[in-house]
Design a protein around this nucleic acid. Structure first.
Length: 704
DNA sequence: GACCTGCTGCGGGTTG
C-alpha cells in the first residue's frame, strides 16, 4: 500500500482527515514517485484527488530543512493558485513548512518574507517566473537554485499553445539554476487524451524519463439533449422552460458567449423573481470584475444548502473548486470534446455522485455537433493537438527576455542557451541565426561585437507592461457604477451614452463614455441590450465533423434525445436522405439549388479555411458557412470532385501566396519577424496543409 | 455567432 510509504506527518494528516482509503491515482502516484526518480504525468478525471496524488508523496520525500524553495507549483490561473493555497496550507501545517503565493496579485510582504528566508513551497504562474527572470535573476537564484520538484497543474491547458512553449522555455531556464541536482517534474491533468501523452511528456523537458499514470475510470454522466430553436434573443418560453429545470438546483449554465451568459442570467433572475424563487443568479466571465467573480466563486463554494445559478463561459471550466453543482447546462455545442469533458466534470464531484448534463441545441446544426461531441466523449476521444510547431513568436520573445535578464550576452553564449532549450528543438540553428540577424538589422538587438544588448526598438517592446505574456489581448474599457468597478468590456458600437447594456447579471444605462481613459460610467436600469463582444471562433476538429456525417447517415442515439431533439435531428437527416454517402470512404454530399450548389465537406475548421484559400487562389467564388461545414458555389458546373482534385497542385504555392496576402494573425510578435517566419506561423495557426492534402486526395462528392 | 489566460518598478503621497 502506498500509505505505508508516506512519512509519518503525512500519514497523520490522512488519519485526521478520516480518509478510509487512498484513491487509485493517489496510491499509484505515491508508489512511483517515492520508488523511482522519474518524472510523471498524472491523468485522472476531475475530483479524483490529483493534487494530493502529487503533493502527498512529494512532501514525504523532500527534506525541507535544506536551504531554498524545495517545491514549485505552477498553475495557468491565479484563481487556481489561491484555491490550492488554501488546500495546501492545511497540509503544510502538518509538516511545518512555509507556503507562499507568488503572482501579480499576491502580497508583496509575503514575497519579501520569502526572499529573506527562502524555503518550503511556492505557488506561481509562468508569467511571474518570466517577470522574475527579466528583472531579478538574483531573486530566482536565491529562491530556486535548490529545487527538488516542480508540479504543473492543468497541464492540458498548456499543450499545443504558445503559452505551453513559453512554460517549457521557463522550465529550462529555472532548472538550469540547479547545478547540483536534477529537478523532477510532475504534471497533472483531467483531459489530456491518449494522443497527447507524448506531447505532455515533452512539456516536462525530458520525455525519455517521464512516465504517464492514467486512471481511466470514466465519470458516470446522465445526459439529456433538448432542442429549442432560438433566432437572436432567448424567447420568454425558453427561459421559462429552462427555469423549470434549474430553479430548484445548484446550476452552472454554459452558453458559448459572454453576451448570452449575461442575457440568461438577467432573464432567469426575472422569471425567478416572478415565481418567488431564489435570488442567487450570477454571471461569470472575463468581463465581469475580478472581485465580483471571486465573490460568486466563494458563494458557490461555501453554500451547502442554498441553490444558485451561474451563467458562465470557460472561466469556470478549469480546476477551480466551486463546490457542489447538481446540474450542468450546456447551450449549443462546445467547440471541442475536451471542453465538454471539463464542463461535465463541474457537477457530481462527490464520490458516488453522477454528473448531470442538460444539453440545449438552439439550432439543428448545433444540436448535431453537440450530440457528436457527446458520442466522441463516450468513445474516450480527446482532440490531439499539434506538437510539431516552430515557435518563432516565442523565440523572438525569449531572445529579448534573455537580453533583459543578462544585460548583455555574447552571441555564442546566447546561441548555446537557445539550442539547449527544448522549447526550440524544432527550430534549426540556421533559423536562429537568421532571426538574430533580422533582429539586429531592425534594431531590436544592438550588436556591440563582443556582446549583444537590447536595441532601441527592442526596448520599446520589452518595456511594455504586457511583455510577460505570449498571448495577445484587446484593449478594454472599465465599467464603473458609484465608483465601483463592475467589469471590463471591449469597445463596440453599443458603447455610447444613453444606451443600455447587461453586465454582471444586471442591466445598466450608460451615462458617460470617456475613450481617452477608457472608462464607462453607468447607472442601474430595467431594460437593455447584451454587450457586444468581438472575437475569433474555436477551430472544430475534423473528427467531430466526421461524427456529424455518420449521425446524419446512421442511427441516432434516441436514448439521450428528447422528442423535439430527435425530430430536429431527423429533419436534418431528411436533407441528405436521397444522397448515398459513405463518410468512411471520404464521400461528401452536395445539393444543387436553383442558382447555387451546396458542398458539405464535413471536415475541420482549419481544413475548411485552407480549402477556402485554395479556391480563392484558383479564382473560384465561394462562400463558406463554417458551422455547417458548407461551401456555396455560384457557377453551374457539377464536376465537384474534379474541381477539388485540381486544387492539389496549388497547395505547394500557398506559402508564396500568403507572403503577398497575409490575413489574420500569426501570434503576438509575428509582425516583428522575417516574412517567411510570419508565413510559417500563419500556416500553423490558421491553416492545415497536410490535412487538406489528404482530404483533397481522397474526397469525392456525391449528389443528386 | 463566437473563450480564456497574466503583469514590474519606482517615486511620492497618506496613515498609524
Amino acid at each position: 500500500m502506498g500509505y505505508e510509504l508516506l512519512s509519518e506527518p503525512i500519514r497523520r494528516y490522512i488519519r485526521d482527515k478520516k480518509w478510509e482509503t487512498l484513491r487509485p491515482i493517489q496510491d499509484a502516484a505515491i508508489k512511483r514517485i517515492l520508488g523511482t526518480d522519474d518524472n510523471y504525468i498524472l491523468a485522472s478525471k476531475t475530483a479524483s484527488g490529483k493534487t494530493e496524488a502529487a503533493f502527498l508523496p512529494v512532501l514525504s520525500k523532500v527534506d525541507f530543512r535544506e536551504p531554498g524553495v524545495q517545491v514549485l507549483y505552477i498553475s495557468p490561473l491565479i484563481a487556481l493558485i489561491n484555491d490550492q493555497f488554501l488546500r495546501c496550507e492545511d497540509l503544510c501545517r502538518y509538516i511545518d513548512i512555509p507556503i507562499t503565493k507568488w503572482h501579480g496579485e499576491a502580497s508583496q510582504s509575503a514575497k519579501q518574507k520569502l526572499l529573506k528566508d527562502p524555503a518550503g513551497i511556492v505557488l506561481i504562474t509562468p508569467e511571474s517566473i518570466e517577470a522574475m527572470l527579466q528583472h531579478h535573476k538574483g531573486k530566482a537564484i536565491t529562491l530556486f537554485s535548490n529545487l527538488k520538484f516542480i508540479i504543473i497543474d492543468e497541464i492540458h491547458a498548456f499543450l499545443g499553445t504558445d503559452r505551453g512553449g513559453h512554460l517549457l522555455s521557463l522550465l529550462h531556464r529555472i532548472t538550469a539554476l540547479n547545478t547540483s541536482n536534477r529537478v523532477r517534474i510532475i504534471g497533472l491533468s483531467a483531459t489530456i487524451g491518449d494522443k497527447n501523452f507524448q506531447l505532455a511528456k515533452r512539456l516536462t523537458g525530458n520525455a525519455e524519463i517521464t512516465k504517464v499514470l492514467v486512471d481511466k475510470t470514466a465519470k458516470e454522466t446522465q445526459a439529456i439533449f433538448r432542442y429549442y430553436p432560438v433566432e437572436t434573443e432567448f424567447p420568454v418560453q425558453f427561459i421559462e422552460e429552462l427555469y423549470g429545470y434549474t430553479g430548484d438546483k445548484k446550476v452552472l449554465i454554459f452558453p458559448n458567449s459572454r453576451g448570452a451568459a449575461e442575457e440568461l442570467a438577467v432573464k432567469l433572475a426575472e422569471v425567478a423573481a416572478r415565481r418567488k424563487g431564489h435570488k442567487f443568479y450570477f454571471s461569470h466571465h472575463s468581463s465581469v470584475d475580478k472581485e465580483i467573480r471571486e465573490y460568486v466563486e466563494y458563494f458557490a463554494k461555501t453554500n451547502q444548502h442554498q441553490n444558485f445559478c451561474i451563467a458562465c463561459t470557460s472561466t469556470l471550466e478549469l480546476g477551480i473548486d466551486i463546490g457542489m453543482v447538481d446540474l450542468v447546462v450546456q447551450v449549443d455545442a462546445t467547440g471541442s470534446v475536451a471542453s465538454l469533458v471539463q464542463r461535465i466534470g463541474r457537477s457530481g464531484r462527490r464520490a458516488g455522485q453522477v454528473s448531470q448534463l442538460l444539453m440545449y441545441g438552439t439550432n439543428q446544426w448545433e444540436l448535431l455537433q453537440a450530440v457528436s461531441c457527446w458520442l466522441l466523449h463516450q468513445e474516450n476521444f480527446i482532440e490531439p493537438v499539434n506538437g510539431e510547431t516552430k515557435p518563432y513568436n516565442l523565440l523572438f520573445h525569449q531572445v529579448l527576455s534573455l537580453l533583459k535578464e543578462t544585460n548583455g550576452i555574447s552571441r555564442g553564449n546566447l546561441m548555446t542557451q537557445l539550442q539547449a532549450n527544448t522549447a526550440f528543438a524544432n527550430i534549426t540553428a540556421e533559423d536562429m541565426k537568421a532571426l538574430l540577424d533580422h533582429m539586429i538589422s531592425q534594431d531590436y538587438i544592438e550588436d556591440l561585437k563582443h556582446e549583444l544588448i537590447m536595441g532601441y526598438e527592442g526596448e520599446k517592446i520589452a518595456n511594455g507592461r504586457d511583455f510577460y505574456t505570449l498571448f495577445e489581448t484587446q484593449p478594454l474599457m472599465e465599467v464603473l457604477h458609484d465608483g465601483n468597478v463592475i467589469g471590463e468590456i471591449p469597445d463596440s458600437p453599443v458603447i455610447r451614452e444613453d444606451s443600455n447594456i447587461y453586465l454582471a447579471a444586471k442591466i445598466w444605462k450608460i451615462k458617460y463614455v470617456d475613450r481617452d481613459v477608457n472608462k464607462i460610467i453607468v447607472t442601474r436600469a430595467n431594460d437593455g441590450k447584451k454587450p457586444l463582444f468581438a472575437g475569433g471562433g474555436q477551430a472544430v476538429h475534423p473528427e467531430i465533423r466526421h461524427k456529424m456525417l455518420a449521425l446524419l447517415k446512421g442511427e441516432l442515439p434516441a436514448d439521450i434525445l428528447d422528442e423535439n431533439a430527435l425530430l430536429a435531428c431527423k429533419d436534418l437527416q431528411y436533407t441528405f436522405i436521397e444522397i448515398p454517402v459513405d463518410g468512411k470512404a471520404m464521400e461528401r454530399p452536395y445539393i444543387v439549388k436553383e442558382k447555387t450548389s451546396l458542398l458539405y465537406t464535413f471536415t475541420g475548421t482549419k481544413i475548411n479555411f485552407t480549402l477556402a484559400l485554395l479556391l480563392e487562389m484558383a479564382g473560384v467564388k465561394v462562400e463558406l458557412n463554417e458551422r455547417e461545414s458548407c461551401f456555396t458555389l455560384f457557377n453551374g458546373q457539377r464536376q465537384y470532385t474534379e474541381l477539388f482534385r485540381s486544387l492539389l497542385p496549388l497547395i505547394e504555392e500557398v506559402p508564396a501566396y500568403l507572403q503577398d496576402n497575409r490575413k489574420g494573425s500569426g501570434g503576438k510578435f509575428s509582425r516583428y519577424l522575417p516574412i517567411d517566419m510570419q508565413v510559417s506561423l500563419l500556416l500553423e495557426n490558421a491553416y492545415d496543409l497536410p490535412g487538406t492534402k489528404a482530404f483533397l486526395e481522397q474526397v469525392s462528392f456525391v449528389g443528386k
